[in-house]
Design a protein around this nucleic acid. Sequence first.
DNA 1: GCAATTTGACCTAT
DNA 2: ATAGGTCAAATTGC
Length: 324
Amino acid sequence: MAAGPVGATMERFIVGAQKSTNQLKAVLAKLLPAAGGARAGAGSSAGAVDALLSDITDSLSQALTSLRLGALNTQPPPGQSSICGGGGGRSAPRRYGQRARTDGECRMIVLQNEVQDSYTWRKYGQKEILGARFPRSYFKCGRKPAGCPARKHVQQSDADPSKLEITYLNGHTCDDDSPPPSSSSHIVPDPRIISSGTQRNTAVLVPVATTVPSSQPCIGQPPSPPLHSVPDMMTTGALLPTSAVVPAALSSTQYDPVPDDTASTPSMGEEEAELLLFIPSPACSQSELLHTEVAKVEPLGPPVWMEHDDACVAISDFMVVPEV
DNA sequence: GCAATTTGACCTAT
DNA sequence: ATAGGTCAAATTGC
């Protein structure tokens, strides 16, 4: 789940800090009711508390995201060795070892997505891309029998390291007789397909908010000016229609954000459009994120539509009530 | 021994 | 010539 034992330890600390912050927030919400909402007055003490808590939770969330995304970058900075170890390589210095395995020593940060996809992926390459801060990883379908032409390229976004840009190439031929099992108990569906071609789909994975492609009309209403930004939300999450993505640390061979490649263009079917997704705000701890399917949510109001990265984003405040 | 990953080398397109 | 994409040897965990 993290880049090595040290990363796992750091992650636990961060998650613990997030939980403590949430608890503090709950306590303060009782003492200072106005602090419990993002609409608190900017100049009030409650507003200041609100802002500080948001900063803390936001920073913790980003730290956690960065820590986990660090596992994706096995390429060490010049002069440094990789946390994940050297791995393979024909003529590389003989520092092989500590490969990423399912025991969580070195894993990619990708998506919690088990809705429609049971594909497995095998990494076959990594390349430094000109002008990009992060290397691009190359994966091919790992299903057996081999021969499935499906591939994907994973690139961590320069602009926002918390995002992964995944390009899908070719459709799966391995699932003709074994459609991916659906998992109704999981909330997170496929990543958004921002652009598409005959053979290439690019999904930009947005961990905090759910985006609807700009080419798609916002459901129910046109985009409205943001009433509040995502980081300012004092709620614990958002309910969103249509597809969304949530980051989670999964084994590179277990995760899979790949949509059904049989459709090169994303379809907004009725079933898909009715999906309500839980996208935790930075105030949410990772443990909450990973178990949202068993948590109860209490909506606090109608969704708010806003634009984000040329996409229409719906934000709806609600409180998460952990299931006992 | 098999499976999975890493990464330098090689191939191809521009 | 250069950059992106893929191959495959090398290595380790299970």
